[in-house]
Structures are given as structure tokens and as C-alpha cells.
């Protein structure tokens, strides 16, 4: 008997199977499937409108999928939605705490509606809450963006959920707070909480255990950030020159050009040929009258992979 335990299922905290959702005529998501393990930090990475929020709204039992199944800790999302609400912590993308209640009152209220006391699970939020504790008598609406985010996280955690769902938690938050926020998530993982986080920031993908790249309601790839990068098959070249606009145009019209994307200061370029000849590119650009040309081979990041997958 002992041997018959399905080890795979035991460790899987969340199973999403072929879910789709259509709003009127728009197919928001189609055929989405993924699993998340217990204590895993799983990221949904995709641009605005990719369908991340729709997936989360289905997972949090706010909307029903048109088809497909979702299991949380072996609870069915439709049949057992009441139990699921008890074990899920959700932080919506839109800041949605009571602005006219104080920090403390918000926390107490959300603890109360889950039938717990703040003290019961205080250890879970202690580190985060200490940041905002000096302002506990302040109205939530009067907090700064980063502090609001921390309070929202505390409120989502106070009932000790088994699964934490964070919808774009770092959108509109300053760089320092973003970094802090991700550090907090890394610590929460150790509490055996499954964390699902969505973000439009590709650089945050590297901080997840595994990511699902989503575009137009479809999953492009699911893997660890390292594996996704290692799957990148082209040689990635970073090109810079004085006139960036002209550079993009010229590179696009280059006969061996595979992809050309602006990437901050530089242009990320891949070639159609197996062996990319950097010298040839430089010569081509010199012929096109470019000045201050700088060409170097670089390692791809998640965004490059995302762009590449989108092209396919």
C-alpha cells in the first residue's frame, strides 16, 4: 500500500489542466496547463493583455473557466471553491485594501474574515509587518506604494494560506521596493507556501523557480529560467551606433537578419546563419554610414528568449 502513493501528486500543489476562457468574442486564454509544486515560486511572465490576470481570477474562484480543470491541493476549483478560498491568499493587481481603515484595522479585518487572529500567524508576516508596524495607526490610503504592497502581502498571508497568488505585485513599485519584495517572496518559499506570481518584467523571471511564458492567452514555454535561456539557439549580438533609429532600419533590411529588437541603449540582433560573422555586420554598417559602431556577442536573457518564442 505504502508504495502506491503517487509521489508526483503529493508534491504537486496546483494542477491546471487545459483551461480556456472567452469574454464575449475575445478568447482571453486558451488551453492553459501547468503544475506548481509545493513551496515553488512559479512565475507567469507575459506582456499586458497576455491573460495572466484571467488565469489568476480563475484560480482564485472569481470566475469560472469555460472548460478545463484546476486542482488546488487536490481540491476541485468548482466543487470545493469554499475550501479553496480558505487556503488561498490573493493579492489583486489593483491595490484593494480599505483606504479609509488603518494598517492595523485592515490586517485585523482580513484575519477576522478568515476566522483567525493576527497573533496566530504573526510569525509568518513578522518580517514584512515590521517594516510597516511604525505606521500601523496610519490610514492605508496614506501609505507609500511600497508600503501598501507590504500591507497587502501581510493581509493575503495572515490566514496562513497554502497557496499565495500575486497578480503583478511589483507593477508601479519603485526599484528598491521591488527588490525587497522579491526577497520576501524567497523567504516565504521556505514556509512551504506555493507562490504564483505574475509580472510583465522579464528581469523578475530569473528570480522564479520556474516560469511560464505567456503571450496572447497561450503558453509559449514552461521551464526554469536557466533552461529557457539555454534553449536559445542563436548567437545574440548587441549592436550600438550613433543613430539608433537608422540602425534598427538598416539591420532589419540586412539580408541575413533574423530578429532585431531595441533593448535599452543597444539593439539585440540575431542572424539567420548558423555562424554569425561579426566582422561582416560591422562592414555592412560602415557601408551604411554608421558612426561609433559597437558590436559584441552577449548572453541572452529571458526577454530575448521571449521575443524569440513569440516569433515562432
Amino acid at each position: 500500500m505504502f508504495l502506491n502513493i503517487d509521489y508526483q501528486n503529493l508534491m504537486t500543489s496546483l494542477r491546471v489542466k487545459n483551461i480556456s476562457k472567452k469574454y464575449d468574442k475575445v478568447q482571453a486564454i486558451s488551453d492553459i496547463s501547468f503544475n506548481a509544486e509545493k513551496g515553488e515560486l512559479f512565475g507567469l511572465i507575459g506582456p499586458d493583455g497576455a491573460g495572466k490576470t484571467t488565469i489568476f481570477r480563475i484560480l482564485t474562484t472569481l470566475i469560472l473557466p469555460d472548460n478545463g480543470e484546476v486542482f488546488f491541493e487536490n481540491l476541485d476549483i468548482i466543487k470545493d471553491f469554499k475550501k479553496i478560498r480558505q487556503i488561498t491568499g490573493y493579492m489583486p493587481g489593483k491595490y484593494s485594501l480599505y483606504q479609509d481603515l488603518t494598517v492595523e484595522e485592515n490586517l485585523n479585518f482580513f484575519a477576522a474574515v478568515f476566522g483567525v487572529k493576527v497573533e496566530d500567524n504573526y510569525y509568518l508576516i513578522k518580517e514584512i509587518y515590521e517594516h510597516i508596524a511604525p505606521f500601523k495607526k496610519r490610514l492605508a490610503g496614506k501609505l507609500s506604494g511600497g508600503m501598501k504592497q507590504k500591507l497587502a502581502l501581510c493581509c493575503a498571508l495572515i490566514h496562513k494560506p497554502q497557496i499565495l497568488i500575486l497578480d503583478e505585485p511589483t507593477t508601479g513599485v519603485d526599484a528598491v521596493s521591488r527588490k525587497e519584495f522579491w526577497e520576501m517572496l524567497q523567504k516565504l518559499k521556505t514556509q512551504n507556501i506555493t507562490i504564483l506570481v505574475s509580472t510583465p518584467y522579464m528581469d523578475e523571471a530569473a528570480l522564479c523557480n520556474r516560469v511560464a511564458l505567456i503571450q496572447k492567452g497561450k503558453i509559449l514555454d514552461i521551464d526554469t529560467p536557466e533552461n529557457i535561456i539555454s534553449k536559445f539557439q542563436h548567437k545574440l549580438i548587441s549592436v550600438k551606433s550613433f543613430d539608433k533609429q537608422k540602425l534598427i532600419k538598416d539591420l532589419r533590411s540586412y539580408e541575413f537578419s533574423n530578429s532585431v529588437f531595441a533593448f535599452g541603449e543597444s539593439i539585440h540582433y540575431t542572424d539567420k546563419r548558423q555562424k554569425t560573422d561579426v566582422k561582416e555586420i560591422v562592414e555592412y554598417l560602415i557601408n551604411k554610414n554608421h558612426k561609433e559602431i559597437k558590436v559584441e556577442e552577449i548572453k541572452p536573457n529571458i526577454e530575448d528568449c521571449f521575443m524569440d518564442l513569440m516569433k515562432k
Binding site: L62, P92, K94, L97, Q99, F110
Partner: peptide, 13 residues
């Protein structure tokens, strides 16, 4: 309007 209903809806209330 403020979106708090979303937060309420995912609770067991």
C-alpha cells in the same frame, strides 16, 4: 469601484 470587493470575494465570507 475601489476594487476591495475583489479581495472580499476571495475570502470565505
Amino acid at each position: 469601484e475601489i476594487g476591495t470587493i475583489e479581495q472580499i470575494n476571495v475570502t470565505p465570507i
